[in-house]
Design a protein around this nucleic acid. Sequence first.
DNA 1: CTGAAAGCGCTTACAG
DNA 2: CTGAAAGCGCTTACAG
Lengths: 325, 325
Amino acid sequence: MDDVAQAAGVSRGTVSRALNGGRNVSGSAQSAIDKAIRRTGYVINPHARSLATRRSMSVAFVLSEPQDRLFEDPNFHQLLHRCTQALADNDITVLLTLAGTPEERKRVSRFVTAGHVDGVLLVSAHTGNVLVDELSAQDVPVVACGRPLGHEHDISYVAADDRDGARQMVNYLRTRGYRRIGMITGPQDTSGGVDRLAGYRDVLGDVPPSFVVSGDYTQASGDAAMTRLLEQAPDIDAVFVASDLTAAGALAALRRAGRRVPEDVAVAGFDDSRIAAACHPPLTTIRQPWGRISTEMARLLLRLIDGEENSAVILPTELVIRESA
Amino acid sequence: MDDVAQAAGVSRGTVSRALNGGRNVSGSAQSAIDKAIRRTGYVINPHARSLATRRSMSVAFVLSEPQDRLFEDPNFHQLLHRCTQALADNDITVLLTLAGTPEERKRVSRFVTAGHVDGVLLVSAHTGNVLVDELSAQDVPVVACGRPLGHEHDISYVAADDRDGARQMVNYLRTRGYRRIGMITGPQDTSGGVDRLAGYRDVLGDVPPSFVVSGDYTQASGDAAMTRLLEQAPDIDAVFVASDLTAAGALAALRRAGRRVPEDVAVAGFDDSRIAAACHPPLTTIRQPWGRISTEMARLLLRLIDGEENSAVILPTELVIRESA
DNA sequence: CTGAAAGCGCTTACAG
DNA sequence: CTGAAAGCGCTTACAG
């Protein structure tokens, strides 16, 4: 930077100002500096800058799920890319860190605590994740994707309205004339699992216990749950499944059982993930607004970094009608 | 750090020494400092440290492939995790950065140039990747995974011996009595694509042009290529496919054509990726030593960071015999 | 083994 | 609009 200052015939202070938006820099100084930068090939030292500003200009995108299942989900890519883009507009780099194992979680926690990043975008569905506890205990800005069960008040988050999405779907099924509507739930230690079941009950009230079987978002669990559902409640005419992937498993079980979809049993999913349209028949499902979720997460994080208080954003979902229901 | 020094009754210099391995620190000073650190909850400021040491203690793991196909590959996860682990042992954090789009590549290039990281682990199969050119032009330590076509001499790399792997497989096929062995290649702008074809030719010499059809590592290309191969060379008795995923596509085409595997046509893959064992029949294939590749990449990068010259490591592959050939 | 001091490369009131 | 100067929080010869 001294070289640049010398080459441009100004002081380091002026070079710094020119570099940071050009406030209080004359046109002639600015252009001399620009030229000098180009000539010298100068690039700013981020560590020195961070030391002076107490900002790293980067945030961690922490993926804290044991299974790397999310990587197969195009929605996840959209989330990552959009967050990256939105933050890049504010000159903030997004660092992707995997924290699937306890060891990795410890590393990530230390990394964040050490002050390497200005904030954290946290993707972690399940409760009982130590990392969530640790991050919320520190004073690092954190924005979670999805409602962080047990930390609704000490961590900011952006989530789709799972409960209302479930209500929309079940109402739709009722509109279509289905009356004996079962459900395959998601894991009850995730907000999606809890809220989608709650939405189902909101509409249907007390259903026979045999109508509700639990799943864990996997395809295999959908297959097993559907099989059980057909035993427990053979006269069911529709099933609302807490995720598309699980619904795909349910479809397989129905096919094996010789039930037609949607003629014998209608199947409704949730997520509108890539698999939804690829199923046979294509799944009627609930779309989550990933684009908006991403930009809201970025916006919230920027605000937290600027010192604002925690807050939450709930975004509406959309019914996508295909052929399965 | 001043607080720690004061609390421990020593100077900052001594605290710093205690923090960095404890060379030239008396036992009593060390323990007083340890206690003070615990009491004050002191954590070192990485930016100040980096400014002083000119080391960021982190490296970027750059995934520069357009398709995020790699994420579905368990081999890739192993690569990432093992590299992370090996470098963590040296107190170096691995930052995962996706550089699939031109825009992202530009961002990553700037990030690296700015000096945010001490080095780069580069996963990028195809030639013509601007990022590879840019990184090799700078003086950043870079270790590529796989031979970087066109940059064999200006970028360090660790690769499996694709050519020899192909030779092993084709020799094995000959041992099993197959005589009319076709090949479905990988893309010729990747070292795997080029080298596996070369290995095939090493063993077989001049084969009829109709025996070789090109693929691009995808499943769909395997299906199409196999179909073409059956037209061009219907009397083929085996086919060596440049990747397992492509081989899965070839299996589908053979099934449609009513050819039994391996009775009518033997099929051999490459990679030993997860799909290999899941195929029907399970694929005979070539296993790449991902564990060693990872640790070698980490080792090479550490050496580069320490100022050593570029070098390359070629690791042996292993024949895995299953049922398809 | 230890402390005083210089230095890493920036930013930012402050005075002009 | 600009420069001189202090400060960000570490590390590391150097002298003792």
